[in-house]
């Protein structure tokens, strides 16, 4: 592939808001294939809202989100679904379907979108579960496993269809340091093995530096993105006190 390949996701002049309340203005960035792209910013600055607009749950006030050059919000429903089928999403709370077992949760996307037989689906489910370290948990219900396991199970669901793009909303929240670290490693491994592009919403500094190679920094006060690029480079070069403060966990001056 040449170096001028189309970005996987391109965001152009995106405005986000709820009714009259503006959350963010004029977001523009692009995510390239194989990136692990970090969306960071303080609590309430609009990271989850941005993610919702990216995965097709919330119409932006203005602007475009392009996937492989196709504008998501200008597609008709079938077009949108075709794009969405290439996503895997790990929600903040896991969002496993509570009436289904872990195994059924993972097999549902496979039943819907593949022509595999029951037997084959079971095999794929077992494979995905072992990828996240949950082999043999097929028949447990989401309510009967721990928060960390739920998170991993829902990661297994997110990668059930071998997605091109995986979205994570605060993957390490609620995980202990060891499991948070394991999840970071898993994200890297999945990117390499599936060739996926990854978008992560997080404010966990350790994982930002461990996995991220590109990022945007959203600022609440100015309602805009105030920095973009490799987080490690941002840490070294950024002059913006808000970015430095965030990335170094420094104390607010004058408080």
């Amino acid at each position: 592939m040449d170096s001028t390949v189309q970005p996987v996701i391109e965001v152009r002049d995106l405005d986000l808001g709820y009714n009259d309340y503006v959350v963010m203005r004029n977001l523009s960035f692009s995510v390239n294939k194989g990136d692990i792209f970090i969306v960071m910013g303080v609590n309430g600055c609009g990271k989850s809202t941005l993610l919702k607009s990216l995965i097709g749950l919330k119409t932006p006030t203005k602007g475009k989100v392009l996937y492989y050059g196709k504008s998501f919000w200008d597609e008709d429903e079938t077009g949108q679904q075709n794009i969405m089928r290439r996503f895997g999403v790990l929600y903040q709370g896991g969002a496993l379907w509570s009436s289904l077992t872990v195994g059924e949760n993972i097999s549902l996307p496979l039943q819907l979108y593949t022509k595999l037989s029951c037997q084959q689906i079971q095999e794929v489910v077992a494979l995905k579960l072992s990828l996240v370290g949950l082999e043999g948990c097929e028949d447990l219900f989401p309510s009967g496993i721990s928060g960390g396991m739920r998170k991993r199970a829902s990661l297994a669901r997110a990668i059930a269809l071998d997605p091109d793009i995986i979205f994570f909303d605060e993957p390490s929240s609620g995980l202990d340091p060891i499991n948070a670290r394991k999840l970071d490693d898993l994200i890297l491994e999945l990117r390499d093995s599936l060739g996926a592009t990854v978008v992560v919403v997080t404010h966990e500094l350790a994982s930002i530096f461990a996995v991220g190679n590109n990022s945007v920094f959203l600022d609440m006060e100015s309602k805009a993105m105030i920095a973009a690029g490799d987080p490690k480079v941002l840490l070294a070069d950024s002059k913006d006190p808000r970015v430095i403060q965030f990335l170094t966990r420094a104390r607010v001056q004058g408080a």
């Binding site: 969405m84 999403v89 969002a95 496993l96 509570s98 819907l112």
Partner: peptide
Amino acid sequence: AELGMMQANEEIDALKTLGV
């Protein structure tokens, strides 16, 4: 109550992004 809980837990979002 069931659907409300599913909404609160983002389970309905998860269905939507699956294209269901």
